[in-house]
Amino acid sequence: MSIISFEIISVPVSDQSKSKHFYQEILGFELIREESMGPAMQWIQLAPKGCATTIALVTWLEKMPPGGLQGVMLNVTDIDQDHATLSARGVQLSEIRQEPWGRYSMFNDPDGNGWILRQAP
């Protein structure tokens, strides 16, 4: 097997426009691609600045309902600053906790998809 990386993570959402606003304006992700996929679907792909792995906001995966993605970890360099910034933007985050694998805080997007901010030890 010659897998070398993850490229796109599908994030199941109920409203692509609302979710695009959250990921782009609240989290600061960059819009990579937005285009029509026929008359009823849109491809919306975003990524944290400088990150090779991207997300796609999907509405068409029956076995992956909105809010069905949990536990995706976003590595950060300054969790205290990022926690304060996201809190000021209205994101409800858990308190920052310490584990041997790093300091972390959890939050959800508007559909309930669960994310983890993590700063390595």
Rank of each mutant, 00 (worst) to 15 (best):
F6T: 13
Q81P: 03
T59N: 15
G28V: 13
E25M: 04
S105K: 02
Y104D: 03
I26C: 11
S2F: 07
M73V: 15
S14R: 03
W115S: 13
E62G: 05
V91F: 04
F6P: 00
I55R: 13
G112L: 02
A52F: 01
P12Y: 13
L57N: 07
R103G: 01
E30Q: 15
Q70C: 08
T59V: 14
Q42C: 12
W101I: 07
P121V: 09
D109Q: 13
Q24L: 06
V91A: 04
M1D: 05
Q42F: 08
N75D: 11
L46G: 00
H83I: 03
T54A: 11
M41T: 05
F107M: 10
T54R: 08
S5F: 04
D78V: 00
T85N: 03
S19I: 04
M106K: 07
Q98L: 06
I26R: 10
G68V: 04
L69F: 01
L31W: 08
R89L: 07
D80K: 15
Q16A: 08
P12G: 14
M37S: 03
K18Q: 14
Q81K: 12
E62T: 11
I32E: 15
D78L: 01
S10N: 14
Q42D: 12
M1E: 02
S14Y: 03
G38Y: 06
L27G: 05
R103D: 04
Q42A: 09
T77Q: 15
G67N: 05
R89E: 08
S94R: 03
T77V: 06
D80F: 08
R103I: 01
R103K: 05
E30H: 15
V58L: 03
G68S: 12
Q92K: 05
F22N: 12
Q16K: 12
M41Y: 06
A84M: 07
D15F: 00
I96G: 00
M73Y: 14
W115Q: 14
V72F: 12
L74W: 15
P100I: 06
G28T: 14
I32W: 07
Q98M: 01
E7K: 00
D111H: 09
R118H: 12
V76R: 12
N108H: 15
G112H: 13
F22W: 10
G71N: 14
F22G: 11
K20W: 00
L74A: 13
D80I: 09
A88D: 11
I4K: 11
K49C: 02
P100C: 01
F22H: 12
I44W: 02
A84F: 01
D109N: 14
